[in-house]
Amino acid sequence: MNLFLLFLSALLVNNFVLVRFLGICPFMGVSKDVDSAFGMGVATTFVMVVAAAVTWLIEHFILAPLGLPFLQTMAFILVIAALVQLVEMFIHKTSPGLYKAMGIFLPLITTNCAILGLAIMAVQNAYTFIQSVIFALGAGLGFTLALVLMAGIREELRFADIPEPLLGAPIAFICAGLLSLAFSGFAGLI
């Protein structure tokens, strides 16, 4: 498959958050202001790309040759958890500035289902190594895009006069619905 199409599909048409419903927890939790949304997005994209590469290697050099498909979920989630820890330590040591910006988001990423979902999807679709990485990059940037857009909307919502029962999460979900509706316009992109 054309790499650019794969990228575009993961970024817009099959946006992880708004179309595939992966990573809804951080999408709702960390979209209150644009800056932290952007930080979370970048941190997630980074972990996604690394996780896609590592889980691909594990699937094709350990699980598949040894005939252990039933350990896939277990192996992937443990690898992702360990990876997040490593990335956290690495950034902490090498770049304190970046750590200050991204640090608080990193522990949250382990339980972001977008990462595990991405790894499993790459195996199910039989992507090559390059395809997996491009797929992860598109998905991560798509996640960032959705998060930043949502944060922008929610910053404006603060000044809106909203009926009491809808305050907070309910109105945010309805906005996400409208955003998702807008994204469905990308479906005819190619």
Partner: peptide
Amino acid sequence: LPPGAFITLGILMALMNMIAA
């Protein structure tokens, strides 16, 4: 479709908030 999921959940949550209040 996906938009319906978000909107329905938002409205149901608002309903639950009303009942709780």
